[in-house]
Each structure stands twice: as structure tokens, then as C-alpha cells.
Design a protein around this nucleic acid. Structure first.
Length: 154
DNA sequence: GCCAACGTTGGC
DNA sequence: GCCAACGTTGGC
């Protein structure tokens, strides 16, 4: 089976890997960036694995693994006026933003910090370690995914 | 809380 | 279509 690998960022104060473990699955609402949207709408497939990354955290890094359980569909929070992610350009008839559903796979035994990712020579070129990398949904090479998972399950 | 990096908006 | 101004992200 061919499976793709991704990294998704979430601020743990807002939604952490523990929340995902508790909920079992969640919908990944609130992405308002076209590149990230395109990944979720067009490229992420059921069964793909996702590194669950804690951003704006102390420390930041990968906290666990999730799995795509529902492929891209319109982010309904975008046309909800009361929602913090409301965007008047998006309507039910013409959705602008998309999301996927993410299921819980596992929480790492050992948190893999950004620092660790940056200094590991086997992880050279990982997008999240690059300066100014703000993309909240990004592709990860299989080999890199495996290295990070191995670090997390030590 | 600061600020560099980046994406988006809007005047021209 | 350029680019300055502005808003946001996210590491530190």
C-alpha cells in the first residue's frame, strides 16, 4: 500500500495530541492558507500518516502520530459567522476552505523536539526545520517520517 | 513579548 | 502587475 506522510501543526494550548487521544478523532478546521488547503483538499488520502506537531510550545516538536480518516471536505467553520475562523469569502455554496478528519494513532513515548530534528543529520532538509517555514500542513518524506517515529518510540 | 519571515491586500 | 503596508505565524 502506498501511503503518504505529512506534518500538521497545532498549538497545544488550542489542541494537543492529548486532546486527539481523548477524542479519538477530530476535524482539522481553521487552515486559512492556500497551499495547506490544497494539500488537504487534493493530496491527503485516507490512511496517510501525519506527524502531530506542537507549535508555539515549550518546546515545539512532534508529539505523536495521527491518520487521515476522512479526505478533504469543506471547512464548515468558514461560513459560521460566530466562529473564530469565519471568512466571508467562503460560503456553503462556494466553499473556499477545506479540512480533513484526523484519527489518533499514537502518542510518542518520547517527544521529538524541533531542536532534535534540526540537529539530526538523517533529517536534513525536513521542511519544518527550515527557517521561516510557516506552512501548517506540509508533506514529509517517508524516510524522514520513519526516523522521527523511531525517535519518538525509543 | 519581540520580531523575522512570510502571505495577502490594495493603491496606483 | 508592482510593491508597500499590513497581518499572521511561530521560534525564541
Amino acid at each position: 500500500m502506498s501511503r503518504n506522510y505529512w506534518l500538521m501543526k497545532s498549538e497545544p494550548d488550542v489542541y494537543s495530541v492529548d486532546d486527539l487521544q481523548k477524542d479519538g478523532k477530530t476535524y482539522w478546521d481553521g487552515v486559512r492558507n492556500y497551499q495547506a488547503r490544497n494539500f488537504m483538499r487534493d493530496a491527503m488520502k485516507k490512511g496517510d500518516y501525519v506527524l502531530f506537531y506542537h507549535s508555539n510550545a515549550e518546546p515545539s516538536g512532534v508529539a505523536g502520530i495521527g491518520e487521515v480518516v476522512k479526505e478533504g471536505y469543506p471547512d464548515f467553520t468558514s461560513w459560521d459567522k460566530k466562529d473564530i475562523h469565519y471568512d466571508p469569502k467562503s460560503t456553503k455554496e462556494k466553499p473556499l476552505w477545506y479540512m480533513v478528519d484526523l484519527g489518533f494513532v499514537q502518542k510518542f513515548k518520547k517527544f521529538v523536539s524541533l531542536e532534535e530534528i534540526k540537529t539530526n543529520s538523517a533529517l536534513k532538509g525536513v521542511m519544518v526545520a527550515q527557517k521561516g517555514s510557516r506552512l501548517s500542513v506540509q508533506p514529509v518524506q517517508r524516510e524522514h517520517f520513519e526516523v522521527i517515529r523511531a525517535l519518538g518510540l525509543r
